[in-house]
Amino acid sequence: MNEERLYEKLNDYKRAFTRLENAINITIEDDIVYDGTIQRFEFTFELSWKLMKAFLEYTGISEIRSPRATIKESFSYGLIEDGEKWLEMMVDRNKTPHLYDEGEAKLIYEKIKNKYHYLLSQLAKKIEAELNQI
Rank of each mutant, 00 (worst) to 15 (best):
L47K: 00
T37I: 04
I24R: 03
K95R: 12
G36L: 05
Y116F: 12
L20P: 02
S74R: 09
L79R: 01
R15K: 13
I24S: 02
L6I: 07
K115M: 09
Q133C: 11
E42R: 07
M52F: 01
K14T: 08
Y116W: 07
Y34S: 09
K106T: 00
D82Y: 15
E128P: 04
N94R: 13
K106M: 06
S121R: 12
D82V: 06
I26F: 03
F43T: 05
E102Y: 10
A105S: 15
T44G: 01
T96G: 11
T96S: 09
L131R: 10
I71R: 07
L119G: 03
D101A: 02
S76I: 10
L87P: 01
A23C: 11
E42P: 01
N114I: 12
Y34E: 05
I32G: 00
L47N: 01
I28T: 09
Q39S: 10
H98C: 06
T27F: 05
N25K: 13
G103S: 07
E130I: 06
R40A: 12
I26L: 07
L120T: 03
K14M: 14
L6S: 05
I134R: 14
E84P: 08
I64E: 13
Q133Y: 09
E46S: 09
K72F: 10
F43V: 06
F43P: 01
E84H: 08
D12V: 07
K125C: 06
R68D: 12
R5V: 15
A54M: 10
I61M: 11
H98P: 02
I26G: 00
I64D: 06
Y118D: 14
Y100W: 10
R68I: 09
A105T: 09
S121L: 12
K111Q: 13
S48K: 08
F41Y: 05
S48D: 04
E29N: 12
L99P: 00
W86S: 04
T44M: 08
N22V: 08
F45T: 00
E130D: 13
S76C: 13
T27D: 10
E102L: 14
K9V: 01
A54V: 04
D92I: 01
S62T: 14
L119R: 04
F75W: 11
W86V: 09
L47E: 03
D35Y: 08
A16S: 10
P97N: 04
M89N: 01
M52C: 09
E4F: 14
I61A: 02
E88R: 07
L131N: 02
K113R: 14
Q39G: 09
N94E: 13
A54N: 04
R15C: 11
Y118S: 09
L123Y: 02
D82P: 13
G78K: 02
E57G: 03
E84L: 14
I61P: 01
E4W: 13
S121V: 10
L56Y: 03
G103C: 08
T59Q: 14
K50Y: 03
K111W: 08
N22D: 14
I127N: 00
K9S: 04
I134Y: 15
E128Q: 11
T18L: 15
T44D: 05
T18A: 14
A69E: 09
M52Y: 03
R68N: 14
G78P: 06
E102C: 08
M89I: 07
L107E: 13
K115H: 15
S66C: 10
A105Y: 12
D30A: 14
I108R: 03
I134A: 11
R65G: 15
E63K: 13
